[in-house]
Amino acid sequence: MSGGGWVRAYHLLPDFLGMLWAGAVMTVIVTAGGFVFAIVVGLLLAALRTGRSRLLHSLIYVYVEVFRAVPVLTQLFIIYFGLGAIGIRLNPIPSAVIGFGLNGGAYLTEVFRSGIESVNRGQTEAALSIGMTRTKALLYIVLPQAVRVVLPSIANFAIGLLKDTSLASAVAAPELSFNAHMLVDRTFLSTQIYLLVAVFYLAMSLPLSAVLHRLERGAARSRRA
């Protein structure tokens, strides 16, 4: 590592920061999009799994197992290149959101299912006994308690997702890691650039972590009160 590299990096810093900032914005978009997508899929499928339809149970089981067993990178390739080959052309960013959403959805389906199962059966019975339908009992009584139980898992998932979005660079989504590769290709200042990238990821995940901790504490307080 030559001292000249650091001097050059210093002069190029404004360019680096501009590129990396644009990438970080995309990273946030992919993370947020994938997170919301995954939460919706996970909640919906976990709720449907409490119903009585055998067919639905089987379909959800297959979905969860398939998407958990195949690496998310492979899934991204299939969505971006595979669907493209049969005429469904998606841009890199929507591809990534869908890929992370479906992959995370499979994971969160299991997380929410375990949360729902952790709520005492007596809660559902009490809800039914005051005239709630099964859907209302799930919505107003069981899910609020289940979500509090699984908040730590969701927090881990969110932070993991933020970092995993770097995989989207493989399908040319112009997020933080992709832009970093481009800068390295152009300048060969890999050490300097990747250190900057690490700082960017830290700057995103630490606040996220803090927000989630606060949520968890809030939930614990309202449970104990």
Binding site: N120, G122, Q123, E125, A126, A127, L128, S129, I130, G131, M132, T133, K136, I141, Q145, R223
Partner: peptide
Amino acid sequence: ARQRTGIGMVFQRFNLFP
């Protein structure tokens, strides 16, 4: 559910919503 609205039940373990 509509039929159950007319029937109140009190459980051994209370089952209040925490």
